[in-house]
Design a protein around this nucleic acid. Structure first.
Lengths: 155, 155
DNA sequence: TCCTTTTTAGGAATCATTCTCAACAAGGCC
DNA sequence: GGCCTTGTTGAGAATGATTCCTAAAAAGGA
């Protein structure tokens, strides 16, 4: 019931300040996304929120995830199977393990240089960029012989 | 009717060699994706292929796009609105213009260094990586006052 | 309190993608 | 040529994620 103090870049109070009401469903949705590192789908958030608020509607979850992402409280990410959300709004990249399918955060990068190079080469104004890495994570490297798989479970 | 000699990394003959039959629908699907730079959706490809082969089924288009991508003849890309395909299988990055929504190819990059850095920092084995840039393209920069939009048309 | 605005639950609608399956085409073999 | 085996297709149904619609509830302000 009390806003978490968890070191995330935005507090719940900020939400209020931007003209949102911090309703019960919204608070729970935000907390669920921030409390996990699995880059949850809407369905995952829905399941979690329902434990605390059984009558919540799936439409409410979608509506608010979209809204919170549009306002910058969450990050939104498309992958082959649909949309995922990310409570970590600090700039960071992603690593996808081709063996187990897990998605990891890669803390940061120091390459403003990359943007500058692309900007001069193309004439585009670069406002943002993101990198996606693919390979095998530490756990899967240890289990040798495990080969990359195609279909991955959703969560 | 005759395979295009267009500088793309794979010719139709290669398809045959890998155990595919180069059927009429397949040839047309591949040609459509390779003949455009708009990173087409399945629906776009379907519309184009139908001009030459009116009885083609949408399922056939999806089936073969997926198959051709799995075999490396096309690249597959997820964005917020669904899957897009790309005839350019050479390593390249993408630039999305936030003003007009267009997606451009960014020819290449020279940073193996980035991969090495991430690999040592995380302990992951990096097999591949891709960068996505966001900003304003040359055309939109000239039209000042044009602000980024959210909803973009599909094609 | 009354009025206005925002938000919600619930279910229907939409839309991309995949599945099912019977018919069809190609190639090998007799 | 006929006969099998295997891969491919078209058509439409099925699935699944996401969005839309609407009436009711909640919040806030005067």
């Amino acid at each position: 019931m009390i806003p978490k103090k968890d070191g995330h870049p935005h507090g719940h109070e900020t939400l209020r300040a931007r003209g949102f009401r911090l309703t019960e469903p919204r608070r729970l949705i935000l907390d669920v996304v921030r409390a996990t590192d699995v880059h949850p789908t809407a369905a995952f958030v829905y399941r979690r929120v329902r434990k605390k608020l059984p009558r919540v509607s799936l439409a409410t979850v979608y509506r608010n995830l979209r809204m919170l992402a549009a306002e910058g409280f969450l990050a939104e990410r498309a992958d082959a199977a649909g949309m995922r959300f990310d409570g970590n709004t600090l700039p960071h990249d992603h690593f996808t393990c081709l063996a187990c399918g897990r998605l990891y955060d890669v803390p940061a990068r120091a390459d403003r240089a990359v943007r500058a190079r692309v900007a001069t080469r193309t004439g585009f104004e670069i406002l943002n960029h993101r990198a996606e890495f693919y390979g095998r994570c530490g756990a899967c490297r240890r289990q040798t012989g495990r080969s990359p798989v195609k279909g991955q479970r959703r969560s």
